[in-house]
Amino acid sequence: MIKGSLEQFFTSVLAVFIGLLIGAIILWITGYNPLTAYGLLAKSSLGDHHSIIETLNAMTPIIFTGLAAAVMFKSALFFIGMEGQLYVGALFAFIAGYMIQLPPIIHMAIALLAGGLGGLLWGLGPGYLKAKFGVNETVISIMLNWVAIYLTDYVVLYVFPDPKATITRTYKISPTAVLPRISSNLPLNWSFILAVLTAILTGFILYKTTTGYEMRVVGFNPRAARVAKINVERVYLKTFLFSGFLAGLAGSSMILGVFNSIPYRFSPGYGWDGITAALIAQNNPYFVLISSLLLAVLRTGSFGMMVGIGVSSDLILVIQGVVLVAASTPGAYSLITRYLKSWRGVKT
């Protein structure tokens, strides 16, 4: 492997390891057996046919938000509003699925795209402001997350609430917009396949097309991009639109594939999971497929852990936070190698 990539790979693996380790320490301090807890986590996410399907279902939106984050970070944009875009995407997909009448396949496609469009539109404002005026995208993205969540709450509670439902949710969408299962005895819907294909397509765009090339150049060195006559502002805008579309798809895949309605606060934080997934994958879309599986395992497993021994499922937020902190310090790698070298130096 080439020098730089090995370093990056090592950083990611180390970061995940540290995250799990600190999670274990917290479990231990608070009186749980970490091995039992992690065993339960693995068993309830990968232990049987049913739980594997559940994990793959959780993986679908994380792939989408992970790709959205990877694309953003590749262009060195720190927009972290994927959670909000996921909600807006869900809203749009719901409206398309509930309010329009169309024949099956077309309806699904339109509703899916509507979700992507929702996410795209939600990113349009900050994208334009960043491209045109250089307005810092990070702060705005957090503000927009809250606005999106409250707006969705409003729609769920006041606009389309289903009074007959046992949980707080909207009406169901029209059956023509519901994404079918891949096969009748497999409760996994087609959006999973779509997510995997999207990851491959995103990788292709980033590494094999001019648009992707320009995004990477801008991300690493915007000044050199300008000298090379790349329109940096346009690249920023493209990134926002592309990433927003992907994050919106996360929302529509959940509504059309899993819930068929919008339940109150339905996302356990898949937008944030995507950010972690992207960083573990070093913003490489192909690797997002692996890292989002890891996060999906944590997500699904954490519920099993909660039911089994009563640990809050938010423990995985702790693990994720630590993974991010650890992954943000590539300097640690060179520090360790230097340390090892100096040891070797002492011996000889």
């Binding site: 990477r216 150049v217 000044r223 050199a224």
Partner: peptide
């Protein structure tokens, strides 16, 4: 290094 190349690529 600033204007002519992208060192990370």
């Amino acid at each position: 290094t600033i204007e002519g190349l992208v060192l990370e690529m």
